[in-house]
């Protein structure tokens, strides 16, 4: 032992971490990450000329890690309010398995690695867009908007909508209308999706001091805004077909899904009290996930089919 060493009894010993690798993985918000991978893949596949499959895979990995890193930084900053909500209190930091400092270091390290990896593997436009996405989600949304305005998820939704643009940029080195349309779909989808949840979890958001729309402007205004956003979202969802970068099959599917989402939004607007109102809001919340997943799934599948027939 050197002079610099110290002697401790068990009681006064600093608490060593007990976090398992799975806790660090949970910091990356795997479910959000999977949606990011899916939407970024759609962006990559929209490229007029397909990138090498391994470059596409490496780009997708970097985008996924960048998204996960921003999730870790979000959990670092929001640890105080995560303790207050049932939905988030089992996360690694509020559950006491992992310290905030570890989450901060982990998130920063992965952010830097993801951006530089994407820059070296694909190009620096894509890397810059990924860095902007992480910055926007962590600083603009998490640190600023989330606790200060009911428009938090409207503006903050831009971060979640950027992955297809990053994917397209990784594959082509440019940004064009098709990737911006995919951005628009996710951007307009985010408010009705989260406001449906906020209608049900209103009290929890209120207790945590998050100014969600139902808490600030009331449920009636929220239901109306959900309806308006759904009306705007439906035609944007069909736009990939109308603009010629998706097939008629996508056109029909997006039209049907848009109509169904609009139907769910009408139900939320009309059913305002009791258990039926809660069920309508949860139905919209879950259907909105199905809506976005299916839209991108059809887009991805038909691009993959086109790619395989082109290769054959």
């Amino acid at each position: 032992m050197s002079d610099a060493s110290f002697i401790l009894d068990e009681a006064s010993a600093p608490r060593a971490p007990v976090a398992a690798p799975g806790d660090y993985f949970a910091l990356l918000k795997p479910r959000v990450m999977s949606l990011v991978v899916f939407t970024a893949l759609a962006g990559i596949l929209l490229a007029p000329t397909a990138p090498h499959p391994f470059i596409a895979f490496a780009s997708l990995l970097a985008i996924a890690v960048g998204a996960g890193a921003s999730g870790a930084l979000n959990m670092w900053y929001d640890a105080d309010i995560d303790r207050l909500m049932t939905r988030t209190r089992r996360r690694p930091i509020p559950a006491g398995r992992l310290g905030r400092e570890e989450a901060l270091a982990f998130g920063l390290f992965l952010s830097i690695m993801a951006v530089f990896t994407l820059g070296l593997v694909a190009n620096w436009l894509a890397a810059g867009l990924l860095a902007f996405t992480i910055f926007f989600y962590v600083v603009v949304y998490t640190m600023w908007l989330k606790r200060s305005t009911p428009m938090n998820i409207v503006i903050g939704g831009a971060a979640g909508a950027l992955p297809p643009v990053v994917g397209f940029a990784a594959a082509t080195g440019a940004v064009d209308l098709s990737s911006v349309i995919l951005f628009g779909i996710i951007f307009m989808w985010t408010p009705p999706h989260f406001w449906a949840l906020a209608l049900v979890k209103r009290e929890e958001y209120g207790a945590a001091g998050i100014p969600m729309l139902p808490n600030v402007h009331g449920e009636t205004r929220t239901r109306l805004e959900i309806l308006v956003y759904s009306i705007v979202l439906a035609p944007i969802g069909v736009a990939p077909y109308l603009l010629g970068f998706a097939s008629p099959v996508y056109g029909v599917v997006s039209l049907l899904l848009g109509a169904a989402l609009f139907g769910c939004a009408i139900e939320v607007y009309l059913r305002r009290e009791g258990e039926k109102a809660r069920r309508a809001a949860m139905r919209l919340f879950f259907f909105s996930i199905v809506y976005l997943s299916l839209l991108f799934m059809v887009l991805v599948i038909e691009r993959l089919l086109a790619l395989s027939s082109w290769l054959a």
């Binding site: 032992m1 060493s5 110290f6 002697i7 401790l8 009894d9 068990e10 010993a13 600093p14 060593a16 971490p17 007990v18 976090a19 398992a20 690798p21 660090y24």
Partner: peptide, 21 residues
């Protein structure tokens, strides 16, 4: 008196898992 930080079996196990990861 114990020298340094003494890990519990649980902490040692999680550290090993982290190292492998």
């Amino acid at each position: 008196p114990r020298e340094g930080v003494v890990l519990t079996p649980e902490q040692a196990k999680s550290r090993r898992a982290r190292n492998i990861a």
